[in-house]
Design a protein around this nucleic acid. Sequence first.
DNA 1: GCCTATCCGGAACCCTAGTTCCGGATATAG
DNA 2: CTATATCCGGAACTAGGGTTCCGGATAGGC
Lengths: 213, 213
Amino acid sequence: MGVVRSELDPPRGQVVEGSSEVPSAPRAMRADAVKNHEKILRAAEEIFALDGVKVPIDVVAERAGVGVGTLYRHFPTKESLYEAIVMTRLTSLLETANRLIRDVEPGRALDSFLREFARQAAEKQDLFDAMDQAGFDFKSRFSDRVDELVDRVDVLRQRAVASGAVRADVETSDILNLVMGTCHAASHGGVDKSALQRLVTIVITGIQPTPER
Amino acid sequence: MGVVRSELDPPRGQVVEGSSEVPSAPRAMRADAVKNHEKILRAAEEIFALDGVKVPIDVVAERAGVGVGTLYRHFPTKESLYEAIVMTRLTSLLETANRLIRDVEPGRALDSFLREFARQAAEKQDLFDAMDQAGFDFKSRFSDRVDELVDRVDVLRQRAVASGAVRADVETSDILNLVMGTCHAASHGGVDKSALQRLVTIVITGIQPTPER
DNA sequence: GCCTATCCGGAACCCTAGTTCCGGATATAG
DNA sequence: CTATATCCGGAACTAGGGTTCCGGATAGGC
């Protein structure tokens, strides 16, 4: 829940010197282990982005140039590896949201975020899969991080509403569902980058205040 | 391709009397077989609607009150059963489209169709799954029927454009992708009927001509 | 009422994909 | 340089779900 420290940080097995812990200090990882750990992460990031959760674990291992046994020693579960990758994606998105909240005028910030969100989700199949499963209400291993993200989007939305760029009766989940929908189209082929942006534009237009009517 | 005659019509094994075919006329189905065939279809329609393609075949058999062997004699493949169900759904949608084209004013017809489409796809998980796989370009067993449907929607769109209800730069695939996206949200829980209609409304608003800007 | 072409049920089989296990290799402390 | 704690690879095991098979039941023609 709280601290996430997944296997994403440069792996180490060392305990801080002088730790008051039990003196059975776990040794540092062997050099080859560290190298493999990184190879696995790189391979996973590439393949998951391309093929999503569905890709068999052997394929990841092969691409990493490593046996499945090795992969499983580094990540006890396929899901744990998947989770490690998705977490970085979500974190990155979160940073984007925060940056936009901080630096960009409210009217444009939401727009920019949604476009970036769509771009990412369309580009990284795994991200899409994750949010697909997680829904925006659903429980999942990512739900905490997803909640944070939804919270940030809510801030973006509120500001956009306040600045008159978005109608007040639109809910955050509506926006996310709609944009996820565009990604959905993108991740199943048949929608290139420009078409994707066109779809997002339609959504954004749809949530703007309507002058007349 | 052309004639679809799936196992949906009341099954019979009879050859038309006086057929010029080989005289080895295949007998009519036994009464119990006919009954089972129907039970299987009914069960499949219910379960596929609820759980989509993913549902194991044994579950369908059980719900139909029939052994898997029996199910497989009637439908040689899980996919063939699935196909039979989805085809009726697509056909029904096609009829809806045609009726709207015939009876309703262009400005409202597309709107009505999209709402009905969303309702159906959200209600029948299998329909959603099918279109999900088929995409709107992708190949699949349904692609012919899907093509027909897309063609009808294109007519609806063109008319809507002509009547000034929809912008001219919006493509049919854009519309379908967007609406599919809304269904996507709906089929993964967290979106009730009213929320779904709200989403569709946003999409429809998004493809309308913008007075200013 | 009898006989057999049809049909039924579900155990068994296969294939896919995740996970475990262990004999062999190797980094690295001493 | 040597000993050994770690690490590696991939064969083997497991589980879920589609499909096949065949002994037993039965509809329905005679």
